[in-house]
């Protein structure tokens, strides 16, 4: 494919898909190890009341109020989940279950009880996003990457998710050591002065922001898949957290690129006529990578199981 075709039509969706995948996979590594990986699922449900409230307040369906509403709802949800988990001393999964079903129900109730029901909330859009439509029509080829006028026409999702990825990466890099120690041994972490409660909250809030930014660009399917599949697959390839993170980034990238390409061309290769959803295909690819890692990965045995004896 030539640059004239690739840059306007495929470069931006590829980058957005990849950035979204990595932004979710990075905090996903810690969430999987902390048995909090379902937070991605929880967040994609709780954004509903946030979006409805944002619509009620502003009266428009524009991106920024919706995203702020979604982010606000996600933050409220993770704070509630952490609070219930710590005060009630229960499993994180149980706390998530209580919070996200309640908030999702509140969102549906709000939707039905107010005149927002006239607004069309597209389920398919929420699930799969619209990655294929995030094209860059102002671009004419690779040279457009240096053309300020053309760059102004980039889909706004790209700088948003890029900025989110920078933030998530900075957080992971800066708090790497305390994150690792408190994920492994929270009691010890507290005795050396790490504020584990604040750090745990910061981690889930970072995850929530990544989820909302990705959700806006690529839909909830990728968010849910990327929090779990790349980190879980990476865990089965290595016994070192540093290496696991590197693998998870590689797997997230591989899922995004291969999923996007296969969604566009796979059906044609198989003799079909239409392309399939890129987001759905990206999630499928991450699932296939996980399945392969679970079958062939060198570190897939539950090592803890036989040492206790």
């Amino acid at each position: 494919m030539s640059g004239e075709e690739f840059v306007p039509l495929s470069l931006t969706p590829l980058l957005i898909g990849t950035f979204a995948a990595i932004a979710c996979a990075l905090p996903g590594n810690f969430l999987v190890l902390r048995k909090q990986a379902l937070i991605g699922d929880a967040i994609s449900h709780v954004v509903l009341p946030g979006i409805v409230v944002a619509f009620l307040v502003t009266g428009t369906i524009s991106t920024w109020p919706m995203m702020l509403g979604a982010a606000g709802a996600a933050v409220v949800a993770v704070v509630l989940i952490e609070a219930i988990r710590r005060l009630g001393q229960i499993e994180p999964g149980a706390a998530m279950g209580v919070v996200f079903t309640t908030m999702f129900a509140a969102g549906v109730l709000l939707l039905e009880q107010t005149d927002t029901s006239t607004v069309h909330l597209d389920v398919e859009h929420a699930l799969y996003g619209n990655l294929e439509s995030l094209i860059w029509l102002d671009a004419t080829g690779w040279s457009s990457l240096l053309d300020i006028e053309a760059l102004a026409g980039l889909p706004p999702e790209l700088p948003r998710i890029a900025l989110t990825l920078v933030g998530v990466t900075l957080f992971t890099w800066l708090f790497w050591r305390p994150l690792k120690i408190s994920t492994f041994d929270e009691g010890f972490a507290r005795t050396i002065g790490i504020r584990t409660g604040v750090l745990g909250m910061a981690l889930v809030i970072t995850a929530a922001i990544a989820a909302v930014a990705a959700f806006d660009a690529v839909g909830s399917i990728i968010v849910i898949a990327m929090f779990i599949c790349p980190p879980a697959a990476a865990r089965m390839l290595t016994n070192r957290l540093e290496t696991q993170i590197a693998w998870s980034v590689l797997f997230a990238t591989a899922s995004a690129v291969s999923g996007y390409v296969l969604a566009g061309y796979g059906p044609l290769w198989l003799g079909g006529a239409d392309a399939v959803s890129a987001a759905g295909m990206i999630a499928t690819m991450s699932g296939l990578i996980l399945a392969a890692a679970a079958t062939f990965g060198p570190c897939r045995a539950r090592i803890g199981a036989h040492t206790s004896a």
């Binding site: 994920t183 492994f184 009691g187 957290l241 803890g304």
Partner: peptide, 14 residues
């Protein structure tokens, strides 16, 4: 401080 051995997940990748 040395916590109880059972208080951590020894499956942790480290």
């Amino acid at each position: 401080y040395v916590p109880q051995r059972a208080s951590v997940d020894w499956d942790f990748p480290t």
